[in-house]
Design a protein around this nucleic acid. Sequence first.
DNA 1: TTCTAGATTTGTAGCGCTACAATGATTTGT
DNA 2: ACAAATCATTGTAGCGCTACAAATCTAGAA
Lengths: 337, 337
Amino acid sequence: MPEAIDSRQPRKLTMQDVARAAGVSPMTVSNCFRYPERVQEKTRSQVLRVAAELGYVPNLSAGLLAAGSSRVIGAVLPSMRNSSFYRYTAGLREGAAERGHAVITMIAETPEEELAAVQTLLGLRVAGLALVAGPHAPELRRLAGLSSTPVVESWAGEDAIGRGVGYDVGAASSALTRHLIAQGRRRIGFVDVAGGGGMRYSMRLPAFRQEMFAAGLPDDLVMTIRAADGFGAGAQIVDDFLARDRRIDALLCPTDVVAAGAIFECNRRGLAVPVEIAVAGWGDYDIGRQITPTLTTVAPFSDAIGRGAIAVLLDAEERARAAPLRTGFEILPREST
Amino acid sequence: MPEAIDSRQPRKLTMQDVARAAGVSPMTVSNCFRYPERVQEKTRSQVLRVAAELGYVPNLSAGLLAAGSSRVIGAVLPSMRNSSFYRYTAGLREGAAERGHAVITMIAETPEEELAAVQTLLGLRVAGLALVAGPHAPELRRLAGLSSTPVVESWAGEDAIGRGVGYDVGAASSALTRHLIAQGRRRIGFVDVAGGGGMRYSMRLPAFRQEMFAAGLPDDLVMTIRAADGFGAGAQIVDDFLARDRRIDALLCPTDVVAAGAIFECNRRGLAVPVEIAVAGWGDYDIGRQITPTLTTVAPFSDAIGRGAIAVLLDAEERARAAPLRTGFEILPREST
DNA sequence: TTCTAGATTTGTAGCGCTACAATGATTTGT
DNA sequence: ACAAATCATTGTAGCGCTACAAATCTAGAA
């Protein structure tokens, strides 16, 4: 008695199969997906219907190999730990979608992981590669330069890998410092970040110093922390500044999260914000809008950075320009200052 | 005068080029990357050195096409808006790295975007596809079923697409409810989420009701909100519960973020937490550890979910099992209850 | 009806890489 | 010293798709 040989395993579908099922040539199927307008409406809908029925999805790898180009952009993110890159990724997706591209992202928390991610993405032969400024593996720059894949570095300055896209961090730092000075603050403490993501904000401190110096105020109330994540850092800062007995009347934090942590700590200690001490954050996070008092912050137009990155990647003319693409920012004065 | 024709454009490098430069056959270059142990140490290091010098990165698409399999896992995330998926993605990356795979992720905020993302990932012929439970496009399940790519759905229950991986949300909800009851709370308000991500937590409410009923307590103090993001929702909840004049003595929130918002609102109104009202969150976010009072919450072992998802995807035996892969969770009692 | 421009559709020839089998080089056993 | 076994390396064929040119069809124009 012959067993019913029923390979439940759905055999790999190819364009060939769809073509056969729809009664057209493989080339027509290909055209339906890539250049729909080249195919007669009737034929196209028929082919697409059959394809959907079979669950056929074109093999992008084969397509890329044959056509030499894909419609996928690769992005590397330094972390997902906090929400600061949310609007950036949204901008990337919007910009890409408008031009018929998809965005795949890889998360890399160390320079080594980043390098590996870039190799994978380059291996996939993405149409463009969006990096984020930060500490990179030395090898990365060379690799990017040798590759013919367009590269942009977001939040980067003059020495970007590929072309830089981002807002003028120095100008934002100046503006925020001037805002505090204008409010009558005199002893302004500045919190710097060492390591991770540091390069992304390396212009904050010099700009702060310059403004303070220009106003004849002390520019040496500076403290450096290791990581800008978590509320804990904010508490730490307040502790440290008070331990050193520095009577500061304002505090510039590297992120809203740190600033929020600082405010929590001030509340705990009964230090009135903003009366006794003003606190400013950076980045316009959700939390800054919600805590009491609401937090003064710098709002970068991160979605514009994402969209700008895509524009640079997909437009050779844009890419050829040397100067970084500058996006905007805004100082949001709120209750905490 | 003949112009110097100097195509700065680095011509596309192929394995062929590397082979020529290294004085070996293309096949040997291929082996160096794919099966290093098959090649003599001396030859291998020489080839790899030449490749690095030229900036050659193997074309994964071509490799996939030829070999029929890739070492890339695709993951779709519902959002990056908050940090709840951070540990999940970390688990995915760790699990994948251990088995020599890379993870690429796509962010999708609507069922339509999710479907498009799945199509792209399937088009890339990833070795496995990791989904997250939530509202899906109807087409998605069919597509996943027809495809021969392994699929898992994280945070999913019995009716998962592919195999489900996640902790027992119902059990966690029961445990948290019992915790509050044990603390002497009697009128416990429950906040449910409609829409986005709702399915991921659909077992929370029934479990809550059952525990309350079993304890002879009111199980109808339920409120539904649309989105679980942002502190605003927390404030809203407190407003609404008070507006309806329901004297609740405890509040179960869908996420720590919402719970934090609720606590902020309570502070604003002078409602003492936990004396007058206990507040519990869900998800063990950073903020829950930092606010005053610290927040009681449910800590899912999200990295275990990520690692489990990879294990299921890459191990056919695992994949064949029907019951969802269960990961653990923990109730973290803190100051707010 | 015949012819032509235009719209559609269809072969052909690879894209860069790897499975597989076959070759060449080297060592081991006797 | 020679066959056998082991190891390292190399052709060959083809993965699924698309650029391109060639073939076919359609609808007027003459």
